[in-house]
Design a protein around this nucleic acid. Sequence first.
DNA 1: CCTCAATATTACGGAATTGTTAAATATAAA
DNA 2: TTTATATTTAACAATTCCGTAATATTGAGG
Lengths: 231, 231
Amino acid sequence: MANALPTPKILLVDDDPDIIELLAYNLNKEGYEIASAIDGIQAIEVAKDFKPDLILLDVMMPRQDGIETARQLRQISDFKDIYILFLTARAEEYTEVAAFDVGADDYIVKPIKPRALVSRIKAILRRDTQQVENDAVVEIGQLVINRTNYSVINHGNPLVMPKKEFELLYFLAKHPNKVFNRDELLEKVWGVDVYVVERTVDVHIRKLREKIPEQYIKTLKGVGYMFSIEE
Amino acid sequence: MANALPTPKILLVDDDPDIIELLAYNLNKEGYEIASAIDGIQAIEVAKDFKPDLILLDVMMPRQDGIETARQLRQISDFKDIYILFLTARAEEYTEVAAFDVGADDYIVKPIKPRALVSRIKAILRRDTQQVENDAVVEIGQLVINRTNYSVINHGNPLVMPKKEFELLYFLAKHPNKVFNRDELLEKVWGVDVYVVERTVDVHIRKLREKIPEQYIKTLKGVGYMFSIEE
DNA sequence: CCTCAATATTACGGAATTGTTAAATATAAA
DNA sequence: TTTATATTTAACAATTCCGTAATATTGAGG
């Protein structure tokens, strides 16, 4: 691993200059040495030179996304064991699985709360890698939902569904017997910086219901939607 | 509104009445309780009284700017950890730096897009209330009342009940052997700003009694209703 | 065992929520 | 680009649920 003793060095990678500035200011104040890049390609160049101890990597970027960037970094011997934190707009980012595949140490969900972020980075630089559980495959009832290849199999026969639909189903199925209102679903599935009308959820629920057995998705009027299954 | 928890309170601070009105309208529509102030001095006075959960603070204001106001707020113990969002026309660096220095949680640039703003505020406030999910399940007598999926299980067999009914039962069962008069129930279950006739409670009690064993809900004539159980 | 105020019960109308469809945008593929 | 597909919005239909009021019943104090 890269040496982290004197002043730890952190590389920030995000295409939004406001985010960079926010993070740079707060981390710098904590005594870290900071460098930044606005996309994945640039990030790798800068990293070779700067040799950071930790990289904060936005998942969604132009030119080259965070996942691919991480993968490439991991192949460079200097960064084999570097700490990588992903920055994502939502907890259930579709890339989550891929992120852990390429060895993410943690992920930070937007909107960023500077104070929380700083304490998390401190914690990571202090302790050794921690484990985060994650299932790429959810088997529930007669459904097999596999996020590594975006497939859903119902009683043996495969279903095709578009991304949003899949992610909504995946999220619900991953938290069975728990109600979520539309706001929560929008935040968890769509992301915090996506601003769509609440009722959009209804339409996707409708489409799911066309494809999977009706018993699964329940409406709790005035409360929200739920993936329901008996134990 | 979506949730049944206490309505979050938001304090709007801006010297432009049009902005206040725009924000107040949109946030009020979401069910938030709103107060406003036209400058920093007034904001602090109002805040002490109103005790908001979140403050939207314009940076540029007469008399006292947003940064200074935030700094002062942070020194009052009640507002040590309050959410502060700054509102500004295009940010200049020193402003941003200063803002994060006093613990800004987010930064919103004018012109304001109401829907985006509302969505961001929701996300921030939800993070807060999500924690209090510990006692989501009440087991009492032969009933299991689960607020994560609005389910009630009586001696092994599940009951379905609409939202209001469920919430009334949940509240009563959470405070067993304690009498509540109709006013109290209306306030606790329906909410403070809801105006309905007292007898509405009777009807919901009736519906509950159709579904759960009669021993549980007792009427104390002239006093109120109670969820009764022997220790 | 009356009285009558408090509660129980019932049913209906309207308000609020969700379902459904189709047209308008946005995004991806060819 | 054009074409196809996915996503979002908007409008309207369907449904459920809630609140009210009208009537019946209960029970505590006399």
